[in-house]
Nucleic acid binder design. Structure first.
Lengths: 207, 207
DNA sequence: GAACCAAGTTGACGACGGTCAATCTCAAGG
DNA sequence: CCTTGAGATTGACCGTCGTCAACTTGGTTC
């Protein structure tokens, strides 16, 4: 916290900050994958965002001076660059454009959220899952011949929390996607024929 | 567009700006009610936001220099203060803090969106409708004895677009709320026993 | 008043999702 | 080897929602 910047290594499953904590600064993801999850009073939770390298987390609490609304946890081994609160405030004051770039992150988050609200209203759960898998495939997947495959960075429960369904329903959605021939699953290993990209018309616009 | 500021009167149903248009500046709602609606390729639409007096609309396109993602339409007779693009840019450049205040609007929008995403994931449609009606009642309603009543500023289709269901389902939700004794409906006139505020436990936290 | 149109409602039907309970899998530990 | 426990799956049941179609309502126009 004394020095302005510091690096931190997180293993998969480790916590970056807790929901309800006050802001200690902003965090930049150097490598890995961070999940921002909102816990509810009833014990359930919703996965609000996946933060990839280059993205910034914790800026909402930094800008608004309110407690974190989500917890941040590494899904994969991750390297995080931490900018302490004082340093961040100093840089934002001294360097023009910094605030504007942060505002741009906010706009991105707004667009992301609006897309998700619309998707929740207009698409079926199966379509939303197929969409999500395509996006994950684009990031985590590797192509082998006519197939793309990846190791899912998310458990079934995380997928369920992201789509907004129960784990049982997630199992059924996975089964239905497999029956449709769009994907095939083996635990966290997922394979997708390249043809599937064309099969799901709405997905392209969302990429 | 020449002068920096101008007032504009909109009747209910009139358009403030169209989806896909380039930004011409920012708009401040002086009185009335503005609906921000996103139209989709399939002809359907989603009501993204209701903007009340004191709120600002069109700032996303202004800040990002991208076309409006929504159309803005008056639901009630409204008075709008328009700040042209050049003026807004000049003010933002000259007056420190303006950008920060705009960023605060963005944070509010993010919080609103996140609440809505969580509500969509965790609440039933009936609960979401009851929640929405309570909020509208708090703004548009007047108390008479043990009841609060209002004239809905929204059609059933608008309500459906806001909750994310079909009009037929909205009819059934309304009927079920009436059977539960939480509300009573006569066209756009809605009445609610004050006791209903306590009846719906989750609603309080969302107010 | 008759004709008309949009908004809203109702019914029937099938598909989907939440819930509860039982089972399965797999990896870690004794 | 057996036990344990968490994650994941499956089946059964029921309530809800989307869809299509028919109908009602209310307001506007001629």
């Amino acid at each position: 916290m004394q020095r302005g910047f510091s690096r931190r290594i997180l293993e998969g499953g480790q916590l970056l900050f807790k929901q309800g904590e006050a802001s200690h600064g902003v965090y930049c993801v150097s490598s890995g994958l961070i999940a921002l999850r909102c816990h509810h009073e009833d014990g359930s939770s919703t996965l609000m965002r996946l933060a990839y390298p280059g993205e910034i987390v914790g800026y909402r609490s930094f800008l608004s001076n309110l407690p974190h609304q989500t917890e941040a946890r590494a899904l994969l081994p991750s390297r995080i660059c931490t900018v302490s609160k004082q340093t961040a405030e100093r840089v934002a004051g001294e360097t023009p454009g910094t605030l504007g770039r942060l505002a741009n992150r906010c706009l991105k988050e707004i667009d992301r959220s609006h897309e998700r609200i619309i998707a929740a209203a207009k698409l079926t759960n199966k379509e939303r899952l197929a969409d999500l898998l395509c996006r994950l495939m684009a990031i985590h997947g590797g192509q082998q011949g006519a197939e793309i495959s990846m190791r899912l960075p998310l458990s079934r429960m995380d997928l369920a929390d992201l789509i907004g369904v129960q784990p049982e329903t997630m199992s059924r959605l996975v089964k239905r996607l497999e029956e449709d021939g769009l994907f095939s699953f083996a635990g966290r290993e997922v394979r997708m024929p390249v043809a599937s990209l064309q099969e799901a018309p709405e997905l392209n616009s969302l990429g």
